[in-house]
């Protein structure tokens, strides 16, 4: 799992079009506003409340993690921002526009198996630009740039099946970024990777993000991951999912693996741990009652 090589980074910086566009991203776009949002599933009889009274404001260029025990509705909230599910009540806007459907302004990275298996790595990344109306040549050139960015230029012609899980996720990130989205949504993207690969990927992601500075909403149940990556951690309670804490993470950037053992890191980690523990206990009690 080689990190982004110096050469490929240079290639990115030399690419004037990317540079121009990525700076434009920072120009105040990617503001997410969630006000009084409830998300419910099912019909009258068997109705489940996945998200309850969510209020959240995420500003342009912020890296926010949604943290919570499994089944707390954090992915549902992410899917609502993506436009896959619509809120039952309340309002959800991105840059002032109500979200009703998915769009290329909000790129998404899924947990796994989300690359098109029949497209080469390069064609996967070129898909977004192609859908946005770019010519085949333009789309391929953008794809190559982004593959260099994630250090996979050499695998442009490979099919996803021939890549390791970590490499596939890097292609997924490149594909989501190739549309220059103002918001990058990530649904436990490293959840299926082994611990070592996961740390590499986290460092890699931060490095890439430094170039783009777009808004990132990152769903995870891994506390270390949340503290390591984000500017803010939004902690959600077990079902129904409510936002119970909004913790500011002011650890200096750039962040590296050594941070994981620093005292400041531990303080934040303990804070999250206690909140999560409380929620997990609650969830257990609820399940026991229900059972």
């Amino acid at each position: 799992m080689n990190a982004v090589s110096p050469d490929s980074r240079l290639a990115v910086l030399d690419h004037s079009r990317l540079k121009a566009k990525s700076t434009r991203n920072v120009d105040g776009r990617g503001n997410i506003k969630v006000s009084g949002v409830d998300i419910e599933f099912g019909h009258q009889g068997a109705r489940t409340v996945a998200v309850k009274q969510a209020n959240l404001e995420i500003n342009s260029g912020e890296f926010v993690c949604l943290l919570g025990p499994s089944g707390c509705g954090k992915s549902t909230l992410l899917n609502a921002i993506a436009g896959f599910v619509n809120p039952t009540r309340g309002e959800l806007t991105v840059d002032g526009k109500t979200v009703t459907e998915p769009g290329p302004d909000r790129g998404m990275v899924f947990q796994q198996h989300s690359l098109f298996p029949w497209k080469s790595v390069q064609d996967n990344v070129a898909f977004g630009p192609l859908m946005a109306g770019a010519s085949r040549a333009e789309a391929s050139s953008v794809a190559r740039t982004f593959l260099s960015l994630v250090g996979l230029a050499a695998f442009a012609d490979a099919y996803p099946a021939n890549l390791s899980g970590g490499m596939q996720q890097r292609v997924g990130i490149a594909r989501a970024l190739a549309n220059y989205p103002s918001v990058l949504l990530m649904d436990e993207p490293f959840g299926a990777l082994d611990a070592q690969t996961r740390i590499m990927m986290q460092e890699n992601l931060l490095e890439i993000w430094r170039e783009f500075r777009n808004t990132v909403v990152f769903v995870t149940h891994d506390i270390d991951e949340a503290v390591f990556l984000s500017d803010r951690i939004v902690v959600m309670s077990a079902s129904p999912g409510r936002i119970i804490a909004d913790i500011k993470v002011s650890l200096p950037r750039p962040r590296e693996q050594a941070l994981l053992t620093s005292p400041e890191f531990m303080v934040l980690k303990r804070q999250c741990l206690e909140l999560i523990r409380e929620q997990t206990l609650n969830a257990f009690q609820q399940q026991n009652k229900a059972g």
Binding site: E101, P102, G107, F110, M131, A132, N179
Partner: peptide, 15 residues
């Protein structure tokens, strides 16, 4: 058809 792939395509702006 995998639902994730359809959602991924929609996120990328596919009609």
């Amino acid at each position: 058809t995998s639902g994730v792939l359809v959602r991924a395509a929609r996120c990328l702006g596919a009609s």
